[in-house]
């Protein structure tokens, strides 16, 4: 019984920890509202797994795994990349086709400024067969 309880503790604490974005930083504070608000883990940009199995009931399918691919492009010619936005869209689709031969659902896209006129174009997606 003791071993079972300890195992349950280890399993559940590791699952719970994923949601605790360092509550210890908020613990010694008069802002009880912030401390008791649910904290989500910081968003991971690359290869983020939306593991919500802790909240899922046993009879539901696990959610698909989200991934992110990105390519650098430039609005004008730069020292780092001569590629235009049009060019990297094609490159991203090649990557998606390689990762998901049966097709994919693009969840969102965004561009992040790097320097000068250079950006990173991101696609967040999951494969249709997962």
């Amino acid at each position: 019984m003791l071993i079972r309880l300890l195992l349950l503790s280890l399993i559940s604490s590791s699952a719970i920890n994923a949601q605790a974005d360092f509550d210890v930083d908020d613990a010694d504070s008069l802002d009880f509202s912030s401390f008791h608000s649910s904290k989500k883990p910081a968003a991971k940009v690359i290869e983020q797994s939306q593991d919500k199995t802790n909240n899922a009931s046993p009879n539901t399918q696990p959610p698909p795994t989200s991934r992110v691919v990105y390519e650098r492009y430039s609005l004008t010619r730069s020292d780092h990349t001569p590629y235009s936005a049009f060019y990297v869209i094609e490159a991203l689709h090649r990557q998606l086709a390689q990762h998901c031969p049966q097709g994919w659902l693009k969840e969102k896209e965004w561009s992040q400024h790097i320097e000068a006129s250079d950006y990173l174009l991101h696609y967040q997606y999951h494969c249709l067969t997962e």
Binding site: R4, S9, I16, S38
Partner: peptide, 18 residues
């Protein structure tokens, strides 16, 4: 902690170890 796993019905009641 085990109780949280064993009773999904209580999922809206959060518990966190930190």
């Amino acid at each position: 902690s085990g109780a949280v796993l064993a009773t999904p019905a209580l999922a809206e009641n959060d518990i966190t170890i930190y």
